[in-house]
């Protein structure tokens, strides 16, 4: 059975490619028209930051500018305000050590289990998670999550509250300039994600509701 569907797929491949090639084989690519591109105005760092924060807030994310040494304090405060007493984090990130100095009544757990076999735990017992980020985009108010072994992709997805740390020095004008500056072509991870707010939907009568399937709240800790 398995071999027959592989054979079928291989025949389909041959047929589809043959049909397509029959039409365009030998096309002179040098004759393709030049593609225009729009030049966006250059903005100063302060303007980029304002744009970044503005877009995120418009998308219902909370942005808190802070100093690196205050991360534990702010995270503790935010959790307490919401009556949350548990946080999941990843090791070996910029903020990881500070997670051990959160207020005593907050239990912290490092993500050092495999998701397989622990799905119920992640879905049902973890009210909040914190991750670092790879970069940020001013033009769209987006944060780039670049999951690693220590900070798995579900850490920014499953817990209903997501704290993300963004370093202002990693802010880029737009998506195109970011891809080129960091040369993503050669090093995309298993799963890179651009996040621009808490999860949302307008699928019922065009009424916006937050907390569709992913985090209900996104708190951006912005290190200037």
């Amino acid at each position: 059975m398995t071999s027959s569907f592989k054979q079928q797929s291989s025949n389909a491949r041959t047929n589809i490619l043959a049909k397509l090639k029959q039409e365009v084989e030998g096309s002179d690519y040098s004759k393709l028209p030049e593609e225009p591109s729009y030049s966006y105005p250059e903005l100063a760092q302060e303007e980029l930051l304002a744009q970044f924060i503005g877009h995120l807030e418009a998308n219902h994310a909370q942005v808190i500018p802070l100093k690196e040494e205050d991360i534990a304090k702010i995270v503790s405060e935010q959790l307490k305000q919401r009556g949350i007493s548990k946080l999941l984090y990843g090791k070996n990130a910029l903020h990881s050590e500070q997670m051990l100095t959160l207020d005593d009544d907050i239990a912290v757990e490092a993500y050092d289990f495999t998701l397989k076999g622990n799905k119920e735990h992640l879905f049902n017992n973890i009210p909040a998670g914190i991750t670092s980020s790879k970069a940020a985009i001013a033009a769209t108010g987006s944060i780039v999550i670049w999951p690693t072994i220590e900070e798995p992709r579900s850490l920014s997805l499953v817990p209903p509250l997501h704290f993300v740390i963004v370093e202002a020095k990693n802010l880029y004008t737009n998506f195109a300039s970011l891809i080129n500056a960091q040369e993503w072509q050669n090093k995309l991870p298993t799963n890179a994600v651009l996040i621009s707010g808490p999860s949302k939907t307008a699928d019922i009568q065009q009424t916006l509701a937050y907390g569709a399937h992913g985090p209900k709240e996104l708190i951006v800790l912005l290190l200037k």
Binding site: T114, I149, R153, L188, N191, A192, S199
Partner: peptide, 16 residues
């Protein structure tokens, strides 16, 4: 809200 870029299945050592 999300732009999701998938380039491989789970790699060795990855937890999810």
């Amino acid at each position: 809200t999300y732009f999701n870029m998938i380039s491989s299945p789970r790699k060795n050592g990855e937890k999810d």
